[in-house]
Design a protein around this nucleic acid. Structure first.
Lengths: 174, 174
DNA sequence: TGTATTTGTTAGACATGCTTAACAGATGTT
DNA sequence: AACATCTGTTAAGCATGTCTAACAAATACA
């Protein structure tokens, strides 16, 4: 771990909580055409007071605007962020489901923890990868077919990098 | 988002910070053969006091033991956790580097944010995937070769799921 | 009109994890 | 032996995000 890479974890511009406030707003706007504090509060199952505080922070940071009736709207900045998170969420879920073959609810859970933490660049690359993986190209078709029948076992592959990992999983090393 | 999936984010048994205290311990043990509080403090670039507090929590939780000279050691529970995180870290980094072709330092950064959040099951599945992806199987070879030459463009693939995503990236939808 | 409900805000509380400052005890140096 | 340094702990402070309780203002209903 170089320098203090690990610390950057909470130097992210928006916290997990804030991102989910924005995501809730987006879902409710789509569903109802409007959002108020209490809607977010019910959606996220947290208190109105907590929502109130977070929303005002997001207004200060320029992600949200409040109209005269206390209905909330995204600023362009907020909308852009939502688009980014949504696209990453989708692509990550798709990856978990289609590539790793993880059940839907589990894929959602795993994606939720991770979606807002990954960079745009990473999202783009996963998209590129999945674009190819799910395509009808001959190489992709054959790869998917063979992958489905593949079960990894230590020794079945000559890449020793992987083998080291298997040893970790089996708890044989260190 | 079902129920309050998003809240589980911080219901994880150990926080990002705690995991990194344990990881630091592991690295220092491997390097020096011992660990004291001050070593962790320097390694993570945080104050001794903060380390002291976190370490005592980890002792209470049963991940660490302290000997008569204030040198720290893993309990079996702690060692197991370290093995799990290490294996996931490796496999995730490998995925970012070898599959997504992300530069090494970026891959490390991305992996760091994510490694302790994913379930064992997910780690296992990524391992299985990479086991096949990096193998010398004909399908894997051809897939890798073709993937390297592939650049995703909206319309180049008929999977409309992906296309929707591309629209998000381009900010054309919603 | 008067009362009840809904909604948003504020205050006080608690838990996290970090900081600095002060201090205690051990170790090192001269 | 005396002073300096290193190490660990504790206390007080700040920021996060959550909670409950209290209150204010608007809305709904009788």
């Amino acid at each position: 771990m170089t320098k203090a890479t690990w610390k950057k974890f909470d130097e992210v511009e928006l916290t997990h909580s804030s991102v989910h406030h924005l995501m809730a707003m987006h879902e409710l706007l789509k569903r109802n055409g409007y959002v108020r504090g209490v809607d977010i509060s019910k959606h996220l199952k947290i208190s109105r007071s907590s929502v109130s505080i977070t929303i005002h922070k997001l207004i200060k940071k320029g992600y949200i605007q409040e109209d005269e009736n206390k209905f909330y709207h995204f600023t362009p900045k907020g909308q852009e962020l939502i688009n980014n998170v949504l696209s990453k969420r989708r692509i990550i879920r798709l990856f978990f489901e289609k590539v790793l073959d993880i059940p839907e609810d589990m894929a959602e859970y795993e994606a939720c923890k991770v979606e807002h933490l990954l960079e745009e660049e990473t999202g783009q690359r996963i998209m590129n990868f999945i674009g190819f993986f799910l395509s009808e190209r001959k190489e992709a078709n054959e790869f998917r077919y063979a992958l489905k029948r593949f079960i990894y076992e230590c020794g079945s592959v000559d890449a020793c990098e992987i083998c080291e990992i298997e040893c970790y999983f089996a708890g044989k090393e260190q």
